[in-house]
């Protein structure tokens, strides 16, 4: 298989399969990290000092060390140190380990964005809720939450677009995402070897996907523009 026309369908299909794994990691990370981040942000805002100190330390460690190292530690550490490879072998085990690393990492970043968003809501909003007899959870869900969401859309869209590209780090534990799929044609796969263009071509997927997300976020911003905070 020497001509580009012959290679393209093979590469395209392999990259699609890889991208599906990328997409799965992306979605699972968001589904896990968005609510976990909220819990972490409540922890770091807790008035119970030992809790907020512990949470802030965890956030510092997770944000302060490379996600790639975190992936390696989470994937290999249980097997190497406790002789107990909790993730199991194979692609499935790698996927679960990657999800855990990404969820924890992104939840820590999200938690700081949430904290900023919550603390930016004027205290008068809470006080208005209190004098109107609303409970703390009613004030959070009916008053604070939407104002916080409006404030955090721009920083969250930044983080989420970064996540699209960060998923490629899972290549380090050989998760078969799109970079892995593209690289395979460098070493040789399905009769194609020594080709670097498939790896370069993966960028098109990332670009297209982040383009869609950018449109999505500007739609959300527009949707929330009916009120000012």
């Amino acid at each position: 298989m020497n001509s580009f026309a012959e290679q393209f369908p093979v590469v395209f299909s392999a990259l699609n399969t890889g991208f599906l794994q990328t997409l799965k990691l992306f979605v699972v990370t968001l589904v896990g990290a968005i609510p976990l981040g909220l819990i972490i942000s409540f922890g770091s805002m807790s008035r119970f000092k030992p809790l907020s100190a512990a949470v802030k330390t965890v956030v510092w460690v997770v944000r302060g060390s490379p996600l790639m190292i975190q992936l390696l530690i989470i994937y290999y550490f249980p097997g190497l140190v406790f002789n107990n490879p909790v993730w199991g072998g194979g692609e499935n085990g790698r996927f679960i380990a990657a999800c855990v690393a990404f969820i924890v990492n992104y939840a820590c970043y999200f938690s700081e964005i949430y904290r900023g968003g919550i603390q930016d809501v004027p205290v008068g909003q809470q006080e208005a809720g209190i004098v109107l007899g609303m409970s703390r959870s009613q004030i959070f869900f009916k008053v604070t939450l939407l104002q916080m969401i409006k404030r955090i859309v721009p920083p969250m869209s930044n983080e989420i677009i970064t996540l699209v590209k960060d998923t490629s780090l899972a290549r380090i534990i050989a998760l078969q995402e799109i970079i892995w799929a593209g690289q395979a044609f460098l070493k040789g796969s399905q009769g194609i070897s020594g080709q670097i263009w498939p790896l370069f071509f993966t960028a098109v997927y990332y670009l297209a996907f982040s383009g869609i997300l950018t449109l999505l976020f500007s739609a959300v911003e527009k949707k929330l523009s009916y009120f000012k905070v």
Partner: peptide, 9 residues
């Protein structure tokens, strides 16, 4: 309140 504190949304 002095600053109204209406719910903007």
């Amino acid at each position: 309140f002095q600053n109204f504190n209406l719910f903007p949304q």
